[in-house]
Simulated assay, not measured.
Amino acid sequence: MTGPLTRLRAVAVNIDGVMLNDTFSPVIHHFITSRGGRYSAEVERRIFSQRQADAAVVLAEAAGVDWPVERTLEVYFQERAEYLERDPNRVLDGAVRLVERLRALGLRTVCYGGLDRSHFDRYLGEHSGLFDEPGYVCTNDFRPGVKEIVTEVFGLGFDEVLFIDDVARVAEHARALGVPFIGHPSDFEHGHQRELMREAGVRHIVDSLDVIDETLVRELDAAAEAGQLWPEQAGAVTG
């Protein structure tokens, strides 16, 4: 396949769950269930890709603890640090190749996530050359950040920026705005993001980042050009 893409101009790639392994789901699950709480799809929906302060309120409620936001976040990040000692952050297989393929198609790229810039610099600093300025966008103050990344970071139209994320809430916002989306849900055994993505009408859900190849990108490009990114019902799932 040759020739430039007709509609897509840029891609926003989530850091935790796409570029790096998912180190949030297991910690959130343990935080809740170890204190006698019930972990569910609705809990995930209310916590994932939310501002830290908002997520902390739901986290404490689900765990059954009456803590202020500051205390909840302190304990959560302490438990996450302990988890990372056992299962550290690492670049996912195929993540670097994915961004290289996207750039080879002439697409601008940025990475984004809810943690501050130091998280990106620590784990992806050696690959920062794969991303255009600003390289990394912290979305904690404007979760999930789809609108802001499209309009303020890239200065493009909603159907010109592809998002690749592991959280269904991002897909829901993408659908509402008419933004192209590919889902890469975590393989965490207690997770619900795959089913939530299907409920959101995500057409392309992949288990491997290598599935996001030129063929799939051009398919999304054609769908964006035709205005057919988000049908009323989910179509065939890829992956």
Rank of each mutant, 00 (worst) to 15 (best):
H127D: 12
L130V: 08
E133C: 09
D121F: 10
F120G: 06
Y123D: 07
T109A: 15
F131A: 07
Y123F: 14
D121K: 14
V91H: 02
V110C: 03
G94R: 00
R101G: 10
V99I: 13
E100N: 08
V99F: 03
S118T: 15
R103H: 12
L115F: 14
L115N: 14
G129Y: 01
G129P: 00
L102C: 06
E133T: 15
G135I: 08
A104V: 03
R108D: 09
L92D: 00
H127F: 14
V91K: 04
G129S: 08
V91E: 00
R101Q: 12
E126L: 10
L92C: 00
G125D: 10
A95K: 02
D93H: 12
A104T: 11
L98S: 02
Y112A: 00
G135N: 07
C111H: 02
G94K: 01
R117Q: 14
L98Q: 06
F131D: 11
F131L: 04
E126K: 14
V99Q: 05
Y123G: 03
L130Q: 09
H119C: 01
E100W: 07
P134G: 07
R97W: 13
T109G: 08
P134E: 09
E126A: 15
R108T: 11
V91F: 07
D121S: 15
F131R: 11
R117H: 13
R97K: 12
V96H: 09
R108P: 02
R117T: 10
R103N: 09
G106N: 06
L107E: 03
L115W: 11
E133Y: 14
L98F: 05
D121E: 15
L98I: 07
S128P: 04
V96K: 05
E133M: 12
V96S: 08
H127E: 12
L107C: 06
L115Q: 14
R117F: 05
C111K: 04
L98H: 02
R122W: 06
L107A: 06
R117E: 13
S128H: 14
D121W: 07
T109C: 13
G114S: 13
L115C: 06
Y112M: 01
E133W: 14
E126Y: 12
G125R: 10
Y112D: 02
G125H: 09
L98A: 04
G129Q: 09
C111M: 10
D121A: 13
E126I: 08
V110T: 11
E100D: 12
G129V: 09
Y112G: 01
R103F: 08
T109E: 02
Y112N: 01
V91G: 00
R101D: 07
G125W: 04
V110H: 06
S118I: 10
G94E: 01
R122N: 06
H127C: 08
Y123T: 04
A104F: 01
R101M: 08
G129C: 05
L115G: 11
R108A: 15
F120Y: 13
R97A: 15
G135V: 13
H127R: 05
R122C: 02
Y123A: 05
P134F: 08
A95V: 05
F120Q: 03
L124D: 09
C111I: 00
G125Y: 11
V110L: 03
L92A: 05
L115T: 12
H119M: 13
L107P: 01
L115A: 15
H119W: 14
G106S: 07
R103Y: 05
V96T: 14
L102F: 11
L102M: 13
H119N: 05
E100K: 09
D93G: 06
L102P: 00
A104P: 00
L98G: 02
